Simulated scan of single mutants.
Amino acid sequence: MRVISGERKGTRLKAVPGDQTRPTTDKVKESLFNVIGPYFNGGRALDLFAGSGGLGIESLSRGCEEAVFVDQHHKAVQTIQDNLRTTHYTDQARVLKKDVAVALAELASEEPFK
């Protein structure tokens, strides 16, 4: 896994150890961001069931100002934090170790994600 485009293009990302998480492949990530990429101009990203954090990190690399990562599994949270350190995005990220429904309820009162 790697960052496909943007300021951290080519940076390798760790995958979550074990077989509980299936990372988004580079090919799928590239297709997704080819569709939504032209709409990136600052803003906030929300990476639910974040796993390794690849999608949120890709968003940061392409110009999002902040990303919130949500996953309830300890190994995933550790991997996200490692990948954020590798890409130097720790100051632009918030990692929540919570159930997605709980996190969404808490995030509802904040600035919208766009």
Rank of each mutant, 00 (worst) to 15 (best):
P38R: 13
T25Y: 07
T87C: 14
D82R: 06
R85Y: 13
A50K: 01
L104R: 12
Q92K: 15
V70E: 08
G63Y: 07
D99H: 15
A50C: 00
N34L: 03
S31I: 07
L32P: 00
P17N: 01
G51H: 02
N34C: 06
G42C: 09
K114D: 13
A103T: 06
G53D: 00
S109V: 05
V68E: 11
E7T: 15
R62E: 07
F40N: 09
A67H: 12
D99S: 14
E106L: 07
E30W: 04
E106N: 08
D99Q: 15
A93W: 00
R2G: 12
A15C: 11
E7V: 15
V68T: 15
E111K: 10
N83C: 13
I57M: 09
R8M: 14
A67W: 05
A101C: 03
G43T: 03
G37F: 07
L13G: 07
S59Q: 05
R12Y: 11
K14D: 13
A105K: 13
G63A: 11
H73E: 11
E110Q: 10
V68Y: 09
N41I: 04
K98D: 14
S31G: 14
V70W: 10
G10Y: 09
R94T: 08
V68G: 12
A93C: 03
L84R: 07
S5Q: 15
I36T: 05
V102L: 12
E7W: 14
N34W: 06
A45E: 03
G53T: 00
C64D: 03
A15T: 14
V102K: 14
A50N: 00
L46D: 00
T25P: 03
Q78G: 00
K14L: 13
P17A: 03
K27P: 01
T25R: 07
L55H: 02
F69D: 03
V3C: 11
P112K: 04
G10N: 09
L32H: 09
E65S: 14
T79G: 02
K75H: 12
G51E: 01
K75Q: 14
G63V: 07
G54L: 04
D19K: 10
V70H: 08
D91M: 11
S52M: 02
D82Y: 05
L46N: 05
V95Q: 09
V68S: 12
V16L: 12
A105H: 06
P17W: 01
E30A: 13
V100N: 01
V95K: 11
E111G: 00
F40T: 12
E66N: 05
P23L: 05
T24M: 12
V3D: 07
Y39V: 03
A108V: 10
I57C: 03
D82P: 01
D19A: 10
I80W: 01
I4C: 12
E30L: 08
D82W: 07
R44G: 02
A15Y: 07
A105I: 02
E106M: 10
R8D: 14
A15I: 08
V77Y: 04
T24N: 11
I57P: 01
V100I: 08
R85M: 13
T87K: 02
A45Y: 03
E106F: 02
K114Y: 06
N83D: 11
V68I: 15
E7A: 13
G43S: 06
A76K: 13
E30Y: 10
G53H: 01
V95I: 11
T24V: 15
H88C: 13
F33L: 03
G42M: 10
Y89L: 09
I36Y: 02
R62K: 06
K98Q: 14
Y89I: 06
I4F: 05
H73L: 07
G43N: 04
H88N: 14
